[in-house]
Design a binder for these strands. Structure first.
Lengths: 219, 219
DNA sequence: CTAATAGTGTCTCTGAGACACTATCTA
DNA sequence: TAGATAGTGTCTCAGAGACACTATTAG
């Protein structure tokens, strides 16, 4: 067996829609390097866990979360990406509905919070690049899968669904055509319920017809 | 800095079209574990190289190759995937035109050769799963990018191009509609040359209009 | 001429996009 | 009633798919 001196970490890119904007979860680093700077939550992989488990564990240290979507994104391996030594990082992209995630107040990293992706602070390591990569993947998946379900509450209106697409893809969509497409694809089904407490015509509430990730050409 | 005892390797999935079939390059393992079994070519990552460089280096040990396409696929990290200990493997998918690759006779692994993807021998480690994953990615990329150029010679006929699509996607395509689409997309351009030495109407030779990977909705 | 493959003309029908319209709620 | 958002009808045009056709080479 060859001898190596390479460490491996996972980093999580947690996306959610907050205040009608696409946001990403960042921690504030408590130690060097990049002390006090913002960074993606991440930690070293343990010997008895696979990468996905490591990503989950890390997430649960920072937050209380349910019904989260997690997928491996890319492994970043530039030789000098970490000033402490050779560290390879496997990035995982997570999607969660804002109400399904609670940021742990006593977590290891202070001031963990969501930041709008188009107003990011200066980031540690190569994390800016990592987030950009994740954004690309997210957009792609929004167009070609039913991944939107993981960022929405279980019941939602078609207007909310459309807004998610418009926010993430950053483009306006015609109401009529959007609804035609969604209906055609059997993407969602009616719950029989309606919005309550709004001061205009209440919209029907829908849910996704399947809870599994599927390939569908949405837009 | 935390202490870890995890090793990292790269494995290459090299696809090419041989005898009108999609094939993948396999080595025969010379040492335990899985001695004498077929496996994907791969090796440990060095401390002063990133993963992509490691994949390239490994490939150049087994073969002489020019104009190869290489992309990171996925990092496989199951705890028990290697009986020798904890080994995480980053898989890279490579595409090459058969005439652009020469298998080095004196390479580290004996009997390196191409195997048809639908007639694979028993494979070491989790390499069967890895190849299946790569196949999925390849099919996806064939539909949505101009990646086909990397598996074809520089000059080719439209029939050859179509055959590549039919082989990899495993479906028949209408000649007329295929050509209409290819033309519409400006995917290829005429070279002015024609096939020679065939005993029927010689086809025009084309080349790809760009040598870069681009997103195009081919099929 | 025949055999073989290269390459084209054209019809149909679906669906994307544009846009004006109607419906239903609260206050 | 007005104000707000939910939700629908319908025209146009591009393009996917089906399929029958013509063209060009060797021998």
């Amino acid at each position: 067996m060859s001898k190596q001196n390479i460490l491996i970490t996972v980093d999580n890119i947690v996306f959610s829609i907050v205040d009608q904007q696409l946001q990403v979860l960042l921690i504030k680093r408590l130690i060097e390097p990049f002390k006090d700077m913002r960074a993606l939550p991440g930690w070293f992989v343990l010997e008895n866990e696979n990468l996905e488990k490591a990503a989950h564990r890390e997430l649960e240290e920072e937050t209380s979360v349910k019904n989260i979507y997690l997928e491996q994104l890319y492994t970043f391996s530039e030789v000098n990406r970490d000033p402490r030594g050779r560290v390879i990082s496997c990035a995982y992209m997570a999607l969660v509905a804002r109400e399904n995630i609670i940021i742990n107040p006593g977590s290891d990293a202070a001031e963990t919070q969501f930041f709008a992706v188009n107003k990011l602070p200066k980031l540690a390591f190569d994390h800016k690049k990592v987030i950009e990569y994740a954004l690309q993947r997210l957009k792609w998946k929004m167009e070609y899968t039913n991944i939107a379900q993981y960022i929405l509450p279980r019941k939602f209106t078609l207007s909310e669904l459309q807004k998610v697409y418009e926010t993430i893809l950053n483009q306006a969509i015609d109401v009529r055509n959007f609804r035609k497409k969604i209906e055609k694809l059997w993407l969602v089904k009616e719950t029989g319920e309606k919005e309550i407490g709004v001061q205009y015509r209440p919209a029907k509430l829908y849910e996704f017809s399947t809870r599994k990730l599927e390939i569908v050409d949405v837009l």
